[in-house]
């Protein structure tokens, strides 16, 4: 593969082909990994591993396919900001619904909290 690492010409960053293919290979690797992990029972860790892999994959897409690594940092800030606000939304809603769940569920669904 021809590695044009420095063929910038003013507007935008031109990604070399080896990088695009490398990122793609990594993405496929992580996809296989995340499917493979589901065949191993790791209890609650499974979901967190799956999410961690998804974050890594998302970061690869963002940084290289979407050029964030070479872009104005403000664009990255927008993306991170969006995720931050989302985290606030999901976090608080999840905390609250978890707290009041026992009040809204019929008795047969109430699970005692492990302790």
């Amino acid at each position: 593969m021809n590695a044009h690492t420095n063929d910038d010409h003013g507007i935008g960053h031109v990604s070399p082909i080896w990088m695009l293919l490398g990122v793609f290979a990594l993405l496929i690797f992580f996809t296989v990994l995340t499917v493979a992990v589901t065949y191993v029972d790791l209890g609650p860790a499974n979901i967190w591993i799956a999410l961690a892999v998804a974050v890594v994959k998302g970061a690869l897409v963002g940084l290289y396919f979407m050029h964030l690594r070479y872009d104005s940092p403000f664009n990255s800030l927008i993306l991170v900001g969006a995720f931050l606000f989302l985290a606030v939304f999901i976090g608080i809603a999840l905390m609250d619904t978890g707290e009041y769940q026992q009040n809204i569920s019929p008795p047969d669904t109430v699970r005692p909290v492990a302790g």
Binding site: T31, T34, T38, D41, N46, A50, L51, V53, A54, G58
Partner: peptide, 12 residues
Amino acid sequence: WIFLFPLLYLIH
């Protein structure tokens, strides 16, 4: 989709 896939299809 990268997030949808594990959350929907790989529930464990």
